[in-house]
Design a protein around this nucleic acid. Structure first.
Lengths: 155, 155
DNA sequence: AACTTAAACTTGACTGACTCAAGAAAATGA
DNA sequence: TCATTTTCTTGAGTCAGTCAAGTTTAAGTT
């Protein structure tokens, strides 16, 4: 939960102009990791009433571009943002409720970055998303059969 | 490139009713891995004119549910489908043009599935997306500085 | 072969995340 | 303080994907 002046400092360090929407957005994402854009807009408006959604979108893009935020977007989810940048951690996503938690990399600093066959691509990042059920949902949910369990021979 | 009768057989094996849109969609995805929904609609309409977009959406969902197709959706991309199911391979995505290629798992059958700290989640899948530049784009592109290269001390 | 019914298809309107564009306002450096 | 560049506001627009209701069709049953 960095203070306004700390957020201000982060912006200055990134050579970005300091504006109250930027401070508010940066602070909001620090306080609410993995929040989606709409939530961020609401949080920002609690502190600064009257901020346009476009401003928040612009600020999120600018901060992401500057490396102060990281944008994540698991399949089936809208864009989410987090302030934990610089390390390479991954995420667990609940299939049922969509909750997201951070996971440190299992295999060290550059996880899984060695693809077995890169097809000539120059790879710079390996993004890992673990899918499953969060503690709350896994106690509620009935175990459901996997689609792959009904494989039969075809004549 | 499976024949219609092979596609028909896959559907029957999955206990699904055999319809021409389903055969056309299944065949189209087999022939065009990683195609997005719009492309699939166009391909299907070349063979079967007059198929509604809703039907294609429904069919894609049903086939995915049945395990005959797999849906992938890298950040910033629309949904894409592939017919290679059952193995756990991953994908390389070009940051510039969005091209996708398959990558076999680097670490064996259940790659990276061991998260270091699972936060109580019951994990059933690890999805890995490699980001980089495809061969074509990496020869064209000028090397761009990473955002993290401008870190300075803050008083 | 005809019937029944659950599943699939068509049509058309709708939602919601996100973008575009152009003018107004504000922060920075001189 | 002034000029310039960047940022913010406003409002319209785009597009992937969904919803809903009525119609058609395939497959199991009689």
């Amino acid at each position: 939960m960095p203070s306004s002046s700390e957020c201000e400092c982060m912006l200055r360090d990134a050579h970005m102009r300091v504006t109250s929407p930027r401070i508010a957005v940066l602070s909001a994402v620090h306080d609410h990791p993995h929040a989606d854009t709409n939530s961020i807009i609401e949080i920002v408006r609690k502190n600064l009433s009257e901020v346009s959604h476009q401003a928040v979108y612009d600020v999120l893009h600018a901060l992401t571009e500057a490396g102060l935020l990281r944008r994540i977007q698991p399949s089936g989810s809208v864009a989410r943002y987090e302030a934990r940048v610089g390390d390479n951690h991954h995420h667990v996503v609940c299939r049922s409720c969509g909750a997201i938690a951070d996971v440190d990399c299992a295999t060290g600093a550059t996880p899984c970055l060695a693809a077995s066959e890169d097809h000539g691509y120059s790879i710079d990042e390996a993004e890992v998303v673990y899918w499953g059920l969060c503690p709350a949902c896994s106690t509620l949910a009935v175990p459901q059969p996997t689609p792959s369990s009904r494989k039969e021979a075809c004549v």
